[in-house]
Amino acid sequence: MAVTHPRQELLDRLPQAQRERLSHIDFKLYFLGELRRSDVAERFGTGPAAATRDIAQYRQIAPENLLLDPAAKVYRSTADFAPLFEHAPLRVLTALSQGFGEGLGDDLKPMVRCEFPTALSLPPVSVLAPISRAIHRGKAVRLTYTSVESGRTEREIVPLALVDIGLRWHVRAYDRRRKGFRDFVFTRMETPTVLEDSPIADEEGPNQDDQWNRVIELELVPHPEHPRPEVVLMDYAMPDGVLRVKVRAANAGYMLRRWNIDCSPDHSQRGLEYALWLRDPLALYGANNAQLAPGYRDPRAESVDKPIRAM
């Protein structure tokens, strides 16, 4: 039976709002090394007295985590600091690079100097909003869509989920015109309208999308031709030499291309950008977009050169 630490028991008894404030204090000390009373007051819109009480509560729970610098009127983290809360790396990086709720819209500022790639393609908010409403409420959408294959057409779709493939966002949806599940790119949509009175048929529901519901486990290993495999093991935290990743079949090809994984059966892709190799390319068998994966060869001979037709 797992034993709960007394500190954790104390944190669990606190109201959710107070835990959020204490987590923010923990974050500031852990990742920025200092904390001011105004950091809490401005972030949560509380008065100075309330911020002082929150800091006092934190000091009561973890007195060894911070020391007051009276000259600068700032609390600093100690060499013995141990975080009270779990901080997910992706959320930490987002907060450090884009702010942590201070400010609105374009006023958000990074917490530390940082650089990240500019998004070349983002969905218009006027298109994103009705699509997200339809997903949340289980509704169909009527829109004008321009595809590489069919040009500009009127469609009715039943959105299932939003997907980020690194270079763009798209929505996974049932296409009533094609009678199947497809990927629709946001920037190719025009005037989406939620259809309030259009019932969703059984075959249009998320449980019927086999590619979406099929989960593939990929075993990624250092590329056999990489000059420093020990560096790859460090980069991807692979203590046993294998990185196991689960992806949906509907997204597998996109993800493997985004990650630059050599998916050739004979690890024939060359270049330092291919740090990892898919140990068993047959794991992708049956994934509709597998041919998007670098070096992938369809084991069905008649399909080897068959291109993936873009939506």
Results as ranks from 00 to 15, higher is better:
94 T>M: 13
87 H>F: 09
111 M>K: 05
282 L>T: 12
162 L>N: 09
85 F>G: 02
2 A>H: 13
272 L>N: 09
61 I>K: 02
132 S>L: 14
240 D>C: 10
117 P>V: 05
42 E>S: 12
123 P>H: 03
158 V>D: 01
196 E>Q: 15
120 L>P: 03
99 G>Y: 01
106 D>T: 08
124 P>S: 10
89 P>A: 10
272 L>S: 14
304 V>K: 09
30 Y>F: 12
282 L>A: 15
78 T>G: 05
100 F>M: 10
157 I>E: 00
176 R>G: 01
167 L>Y: 03
89 P>H: 05
47 G>I: 06
21 R>C: 01
226 H>K: 11
105 G>Q: 07
264 S>C: 06
213 N>E: 05
101 G>V: 08
64 E>Y: 04
96 L>Q: 05
145 Y>C: 03
260 N>W: 08
125 V>M: 14
308 I>H: 13
266 D>L: 06
28 K>M: 14
122 L>H: 09
142 R>H: 12
187 T>K: 04
303 S>D: 13
195 L>E: 07
20 E>V: 09
268 S>N: 06
229 P>T: 06
195 L>D: 02
16 Q>F: 14
68 L>H: 13
175 D>K: 05
134 A>I: 01
169 W>G: 00
281 P>S: 10
168 R>C: 02
141 V>G: 01
311 M>K: 07
99 G>P: 00
271 G>F: 13
10 L>Q: 13
15 P>D: 05
298 D>L: 08
64 E>K: 10
15 P>W: 04
297 R>P: 00
174 Y>V: 04
188 R>I: 05
200 I>Y: 06
311 M>Q: 12
138 G>T: 01
